[in-house]
Amino acid sequence: MSKVLVIAEHDGTNLNGSTARAVSCASDLGLDGIDIVVLASDGSAVAEQAAKISGVSNVLLVQNPANENAVAAFLAPQIEALATDYSHVLAPSTTFGKDLMPRVAAHLGRPQISDIMRVESSHVFDRPIYAGNAIATVEAPEGLVIGTVRTASYKAAANDGSASVETRSVDVTLPTHTRFVELASGGGGDRPDLQAASKVVSGGRGVGSEENFKVIYNLADKMGAGVGASRAAVDAGFIPNDHQVGQTGKIIAPDLYMAFGISGAIQHLAGIKDAGTIVAINKDADAPIFEVADYGLVADLFEVIEELEKAL
């Protein structure tokens, strides 16, 4: 039997939307079954959410106080113990999965396929390299496949499943060398999550200051959009790091992406290649962002936002 194990990403209360996207990728493998493992300290609520993802047979719930926070060095040995029953182990290619999966792979002596964007067969995949400026078709060696899924390439699997939830105890000794201290979240408030938002309003260095970024937030709120940013805007302290879009930030695929005062460096474009419609507002007619924008407007971003606010 060839089965896929998908590692659930969650915050202890809510299942992260990236999990259902990883399940979509797992479905494309066309194997005999898909299970999800929820590693948590108290994870029954998360397990119930995972059980609703369609296409999933079993949800394994592994509870351990050490799983209160997602520390790769604690989670990896537990996943390794479960991996023996599977032909594939996948996690979303979010910072959670990127941190965790290579640790699992190395212990098991397996190479890892990062950022799977298309499944050709059980061992052949497409993945982006060079910030998405080339696509490599790669073949994993025979045997267990460990991979992360580029979530922007997959729609979330439907939510009408009814998998069974099974509590598992995993008997492994966990290391004591790592301590979780705290998580300071960027404080996006009630705004839609950047990676799940259908609309994203994004600002770059051209916005000019943290103070000026208010106009970006206001427009986003008016449109029900998430807020993104370029690296330059984050580096300059206009906005927290969790808003960064691009090769080293978040890879997103909203229906609408509106870039204000972003030049369109390849590293930024790497994060928005899968957006439905890209709108760019930039006062420089030669900015590279216009090469990928569906609608470009050469203008001052502040004037445009003012007019947009009135028009919406």
Partner: peptide, 11 residues
């Protein structure tokens, strides 16, 4: 730097 913000760990 994690998706949710800034996480601190001690190792």
């Amino acid at each position: 730097e994690v998706d949710a913000g800034l996480e601190t760990i001690s190792v």
